[in-house]
Simulated scan of single mutants.
Amino acid sequence: MYTAVALDGPAGAGKSSIAKRAAKALDFIYVDTGALYRTIGYAATLDGIEPVDSPEVDALLAKTKVDLTFNDKGEQIVLLNGEDVSGFIRTPEASMTASKISAIPKVRAFLLDLQRNMAKTHNVIMDGRDIGTVVLPDAQVKIFLTASPEARAQRRYKELLEKGMDVNYEDILSDVKERDYNDSHRATAPLKPAEGCVIVDTTELDFEQSVEKIISVIKETI
């Protein structure tokens, strides 16, 4: 019997980095579902397809194969039709495209089995927007990780600056708020805390404190 941890929350809450560190500490596999949607969005961008429900997106899915694999450090590698695209899907543009494409029901259905199969064959911490509500509703541990929009924008701003990118804090804050609205108001699998989840607000916590909090919630639950 494998243990599944569903970690949901808004954009920029630190889900990926926190989940990755917690998974390593617990010897779980970390599954970044946002990367899957980013990959579909990236595929659409490559083909010049608008990220809206359309026959063009249907055709794109029909010829698209997305796989998750892991390197010897346990880090997730995302493959698009056999090609590692992990380095191409982390831009602000890719983030916004992912938000739009993830609202398409057929895209969500396309990726659902891949995500569920991971939880059937590994102990996982899986992060996303609808893991506890839709993807893994029977997960043993459900956590909703959040922080204020300002705190999330500041963290993203700092992260992108450290990567040498020319970014503006107000633009990032605007993107965070727009993403929050889009994710929570979409018709399919809107962002919301899962029933019975533990809500963890990291606005006042630093990274290490956030990781410790998540690990303690997981250990107390399982």
Rank of each mutant, 00 (worst) to 15 (best):
K100T: 13
K100P: 07
K100F: 13
I101T: 14
I101Q: 08
S102N: 14
S102I: 11
S102H: 06
S102K: 11
A103F: 01
A103M: 10
A103T: 13
I104K: 11
I104M: 12
I104L: 10
I104Q: 10
P105I: 07
P105N: 07
P105D: 05
K106M: 03
K106I: 02
V107T: 05
V107K: 08
V107A: 05
R108C: 03
R108Y: 00
R108P: 05
R108I: 02
A109T: 13
A109R: 14
A109G: 05
F110M: 04
F110G: 05
F110P: 06
F110R: 10
L111T: 05
L111M: 07
L111F: 01
L111Y: 00
L112R: 15
L112Y: 04
L112V: 12
L112I: 04
D113E: 15
D113I: 07
D113C: 04
D113P: 06
L114A: 03
Q115S: 09
Q115D: 08
Q115F: 02
R116L: 03
R116M: 08
R116A: 05
N117R: 13
M118L: 12
M118Y: 01
M118A: 06
M118Q: 14
A119W: 03
A119M: 08
A119Y: 03
K120Y: 01
K120Q: 14
T121D: 06
T121A: 11
N123D: 15
V124D: 01
V124C: 07
V124N: 02
I125N: 07
M126T: 15
M126R: 13
M126P: 06
M126V: 14
M126D: 08
M126Y: 06
D127P: 09
D127I: 02
D127H: 02
G128E: 03
R129Y: 01
R129A: 05
D130V: 09
D130A: 08
D130H: 06
D130T: 05
I131G: 12
I131M: 13
G132Q: 04
T133E: 02
T133L: 04
V134N: 02
V134F: 00
V134K: 11
V135N: 04
V135Y: 01
V135I: 14
V135L: 02
L136V: 06
L136I: 04
L136E: 03
L136C: 06
P137H: 02
P137R: 11
D138M: 06
D138S: 12
A139R: 12
A139W: 01
A139D: 09
Q140G: 09
V141R: 14
V141M: 12
K142P: 01
K142Y: 01
K142G: 10
I143G: 13
I143A: 14
I143P: 11
F144H: 15
F144M: 13
L145W: 04
L145A: 13
L145I: 02
L145F: 05
L145M: 14
L145G: 13
A147K: 01
A147M: 00
A147E: 00
S148M: 03
S148N: 07
S148G: 09
P149S: 04
P149Y: 00
E150R: 11
R152L: 08
R152F: 03
R152E: 12
A153N: 09
A153S: 12
